[in-house]
Amino acid sequence: MRALQCDEYGSVAQVRLVQKEVPGQPGPDEVVIDVAYASVSHAVGLMVEGKYQTRPPLPFSPGTEAVGEVVAVGKDVTRLKPGDAVVAVAPWGCYAERIKLPEYTVYPIPDGLNLLDALPIPISYGTAYTGLLWRCGLKPGESVLVLGAGAGVGLAAVELATQMGARVIACASTAEKRQAALERGAVAAVVPGPDLARQVKEAADGRGADVVVDPVGGELFGYAVRAAAHDARLLSIGFASGSMPEVPANIMLVKNLTLHGFFFGRYIGWTPAKESIVHAPALQQAMRTMLTWAQEGRLRPSVARVFPMSGLADAMALLHSRQVVGKLAINIKE
């Protein structure tokens, strides 16, 4: 089978297309998936560079999220069967024509939802859903400030917080991204910068945001702290800006703020402890909810552009440009 392979940690440009052995028969709790598309993310780039929390043994195929069709199941698998359309999460390996995975991080796609629309659900939407509910305990009627609101996780957070009954204020760097957030339920769209607190308070009846979702980091985090309401919860889920923020502890203290660090990888098997099996029942329920919402049109997962397998470096460059609305994907069949 064809696969992309990273032979040494470094630039994504070094990843090459190779021929590899097709995965063997699944174990008792495993499934084999014929992959159609796989997503592109900052995590993939960091993994190839050897800078991510997880360092795969070399050589390895990158890719952490895929959609396709089940072609074989182990004897103990009851949730899935050959022929099922599925979306899956893996520690790595999704940039290959076939992949073998534990069944508990593979999720059936409901009828009527196409593969590309399902692709962003597990990681982008899963991160936003579990962060908002499991960590921040979001309640209907609260105000939510979403930073990086035009990209994958940010745009997912806008949609999901809206579905949960929150009043969403979207912060994004371009007019196109702000418009996309407004079309997906945000009640206001603001511009990142030193003036953020004033803009947010104008949109939140003068009191600031009850929850701040931050996949960006950098100096924008400091501006967001000033835009938070008293007793607010801050959710730190990544550093797309390329720099980690400095936490203004004095403002955190005076405003009685809570900072939640959140690593979604803990729930999907990206830690040495491989905790995914522990969290599988709760996560499977969350995925069913989100995939059903997408099927019903209550969520609008967006893949902005699809690249061939030879286009991974181009896809990563576009992602790093921060001009993408939604997600990028690799066509494994092309």
Score class of each variant (00 low, 15 high):
264 F>I: 03
241 S>E: 04
327 K>F: 07
105 T>M: 00
12 V>M: 11
249 A>G: 06
285 Q>C: 06
238 G>R: 02
265 G>E: 03
155 L>W: 05
45 G>T: 05
192 P>Y: 08
265 G>F: 02
290 M>T: 00
59 P>A: 06
290 M>W: 01
262 F>A: 05
35 V>R: 00
287 M>F: 12
268 I>L: 10
235 L>A: 11
3 A>D: 03
29 D>H: 14
238 G>W: 03
225 V>C: 14
195 D>K: 09
19 Q>D: 15
6 C>G: 11
333 K>A: 13
4 L>P: 04
69 E>I: 14
80 L>H: 09
130 T>L: 14
196 L>W: 00
185 G>A: 02
190 V>G: 11
43 A>L: 14
66 A>D: 04
272 P>G: 07
279 H>V: 09
58 L>T: 06
291 L>Q: 07
227 A>N: 10
253 L>G: 03
272 P>W: 15
128 A>Y: 07
169 I>D: 03
318 L>H: 12
153 V>P: 10
251 I>V: 15
106 V>M: 01
285 Q>N: 13
91 P>E: 08
95 Y>V: 02
130 T>V: 09
99 I>H: 11
203 A>D: 08
203 A>I: 04
22 V>F: 02
161 A>W: 09
144 V>K: 10
210 D>E: 02
82 P>M: 06
88 A>D: 05
62 P>T: 07
189 A>L: 12
230 H>S: 10
73 V>F: 07
205 D>Q: 14
135 R>W: 02
59 P>E: 09
44 V>C: 04
93 G>N: 05
87 V>W: 02
30 E>D: 08
177 K>A: 10
184 R>V: 08
221 F>K: 14
75 K>E: 13
1 M>L: 12
214 D>A: 03
171 C>Y: 04
61 S>L: 00
240 A>G: 02
123 I>Y: 01
90 A>G: 00
94 C>P: 00
317 A>H: 07
15 V>Q: 04
229 A>M: 12
13 A>E: 03
23 P>C: 05
262 F>E: 02
185 G>K: 00
85 A>K: 15
57 P>I: 07
227 A>E: 09
164 M>V: 02
175 A>D: 15
162 T>L: 08
278 V>C: 03
9 Y>C: 03
276 S>K: 04
118 A>C: 03
45 G>V: 00
327 K>S: 08
192 P>A: 08
106 V>A: 02
31 V>A: 08
328 L>C: 05
263 F>Q: 09
93 G>W: 01
164 M>R: 14
134 W>M: 04
77 V>P: 13
72 A>H: 01
13 A>M: 01
7 D>H: 08
257 L>P: 13
61 S>Q: 00
281 P>K: 05
142 E>N: 03
75 K>D: 09
241 S>D: 04
187 V>T: 12
